[in-house]
């Protein structure tokens, strides 16, 4: 029962790091959604760029997250914002790709009908395309969020704070209870994010 006594003695720390982790993720995701959806929409209007952009995003994904974060240190130094930028870069691919395919897969007959009724492109985008693509975009956001919760733990290594601190400190001090606390908290956070966003996704697809 060492583990429970460890957890019981660190509630305030666990709470603080969970909040830190949450803030890190929310900041990164807010930025990634704005950038990802805008880029995703833009490339639906210009196909050659679409392939290039998606390819670049895919290459970004093959760079190990630890390396990506490490490479950002010379540019941004150690700290919160390095973590945020790293997380944004990783969450771009699922969001951009899903926005792009979500819009591309809309039945052309619907768009033709909208044009036929005299809607302009701006209205079509806001009233037809984005609402119809929403479930697919939401799925991309969910994938990105779950991934980013995990990478957020790695970002603790470059000083971004969060639950990864338990894991890294635990490893360096060989404190199993501390490692376990960090690993479990981060896993619970990821599973919770997944479940909540699944519910949101379901709501979005009923429209």
């Amino acid at each position: 029962m060492d583990f429970w006594s460890f957890v019981n003695s660190r509630w305030d720390k666990i709470f603080a790091l969970t909040i830190e982790h949450g803030v890190l993720i929310l900041t990164a995701m807010a930025a990634a959604i704005v950038v990802g959806v805008v880029v995703g929409v833009l490339i639906t209007y210009y196909n050659p760029a679409a392939h290039a952009v998606l390819y670049i995003c895919q290459i970004l994904m093959t760079v190990p997250s630890l390396a990506m974060l490490g490479l950002l240190i010379p540019l941004l130094g150690i700290g919160f914002w390095t973590g945020v930028v790293g997380l944004i870069l990783y969450s771009l691919l699922p969001i951009v790709r899903n926005t792009y395919t979500g819009i591309r897969e809309i039945d052309p007959a619907i768009l033709e009908a909208a044009r036929g009724m005299g809607m302009n492109e701006r209205t079509i985008l806001l009233k037809i395309k984005l609402p119809l693509a929403l479930p697919v975009i939401m799925a991309g956001i969910r994938t990105a969020t779950v991934m980013v919760v995990g990478i957020g733990a790695i970002a603790s290594y470059v000083g971004a704070g969060g639950l990864g601190e338990f894991i890294f400190r635990g490893i360096s001090r060989y404190n199993k209870d501390m490692i376990l606390t960090g690993a479990i908290c981060v896993s619970v956070l990821a599973i919770a994010a997944d479940l909540i966003l699944k519910l949101v996704e379901k709501k979005a697809s009923f429209r």
């Binding site: 779950v146 919760v149 995990g150 990478i151 733990a153 790695i154 990864g164 894991i167 635990g170 490893i171 199993k176 490692i179 376990l180 960090g182 690993a183 479990i184 981060v186 896993s187 990821a190 599973i191 994010a193 997944d194």
Partner: peptide, 17 residues
């Protein structure tokens, strides 16, 4: 589906313990 959402670092750390 649930297990896949567990972050990789957490998996490594868990098995290390």
């Amino acid at each position: 589906n649930v297990a896949q959402t567990v972050p990789s670092l957490a998996v490594l750390a868990l098995f290390m313990t």
